[in-house]
Write a protein that binds this DNA or RNA. Structure first.
Length: 293
DNA sequence: GTCCAGGACTCGC
DNA sequence: GCGAGTCATGGA
């Protein structure tokens, strides 16, 4: 058993609440605990996360094929974004008429990251222009097809397949999962590039400049501005990233501003531009204004 | 039946 | 460089 703490405010309950409203096959909320199966250098680990009395997180590993404690701790800190200076964002957001109410409603809410870049790209492609719930169904089909899981107390906990493994799935198989022909092409191309290194996490982490990574990402077919920014947010942790064009941001602004019709692109951009280096958390807290689905 | 989903690409001008 | 059409499918 080990414990990790956050840099500033954190509420485990906010993470639980977020996760319960997703249908992500790569983690499960059971009671007040989060279960996640993950690879550590090819070794499978089942992590069980719960709230600690000190406002942090307790990590247990019911199944561990040999990963080190520090590695697992570091993973969870990164996954739940516990190192981020949330107070810094709150100082900024407290002066913003839209965000100030939202940070009170969801005090201690932090981003849940996507640690696996294959997961991030798969999700950003599947999630294009379809409902989130259907996108989760499609992702589940891909993950379960590959079949990597840990069995524990009668439950199956699935692990993210390797990028190369997904890229190698037959196109017809992906089509049968109701993934469109075009998305099938994107998935095979992009995840193939993850496997070959052009889009690997370690390579993308060598970039410091937002504009340069953005340009590199969007040079691949199937990765547009929205997809690039979702990856920059949740995986590469560029704090200024905002998924421009996102339907959720549009709806949230309409709701918070009490508009009769959907806001224009210009109206939205003027708002998100003001967030600057807090763009990522501005986005997250705006999303939190939407009714949970 | 219509419209919209956590978009991106291609084409025509 | 910008707008319209296309892709796919499910749910309201």
């Amino acid at each position: 058993m080990m414990e990790i703490k956050a840099n500033g405010p954190y509420r485990f309950g906010e993470t639980l609440d977020y996760m319960e409203h997703q249908d992500d096959c790569l983690y499960k909320v059971i009671g007040d605990e989060i279960y996640k199966a993950e690879w550590f250098d090819g070794r499978k680990v089942l992590m069980k996360l719960s709230e600690s009395a000190g406002g942090g997180v307790i990590i247990e590993t019911p199944v561990n094929e040999g990963a080190g404690i520090d590695e697992i701790k570091g993973y969870c800190e990164d996954w739940l974004d516990l190192d981020y200076d949330l107070d810094g964002f709150y100082q900024f957001a407290g002066k913003d008429k839209r965000l100030s109410g939202l940070i009170d409603d969801h005090y201690g809410y932090r981003m849940v990251g996507k640690m696996d870049i294959a997961d991030a790209f798969l999700w950003s492609i599947l999630g294009q222009q379809i409902t989130k719930s259907f996108a989760y169904v499609l992702k589940r089909r891909v993950v379960e097809y590959c079949g990597h899981h840990i069995e524990y107390e009668g439950e199956k906990f699935y692990l993210m397949p390797d990028a190369g493994e997904i890229a190698a799935i037959d196109s017809e198989v992906l089509r049968e999962m109701q993934i469109s022909t075009r998305k099938t092409e994107y998935i095979k191309d992009v995840l193939g590039s993850v496997a070959s290194g052009e889009l690997s996490k370690s390579y993308l982490e060598t970039f410091d400049d937002y504009d340069e990574v953005f340009k590199h990402l969007t040079s691949f077919r199937g990765i547009g501005p929205w997809s690039a920014n979702t990856v920059l947010m949740r995986t590469l942790k560029f704090r200024n990233a905002v998924p421009v064009g996102d339907a959720g941001i549009k709806n949230a602004i309409r709701l918070v501003d009490g508009l009769d019709a959907a806001p224009s692109k210009k109206y939205i951009n003027e708002i998100t531009d003001q967030w600057g280096r807090f763009g990522m958390y501005g986005t997250l807290y705006m999303w939190s204004a939407l009714p949970a689905k």
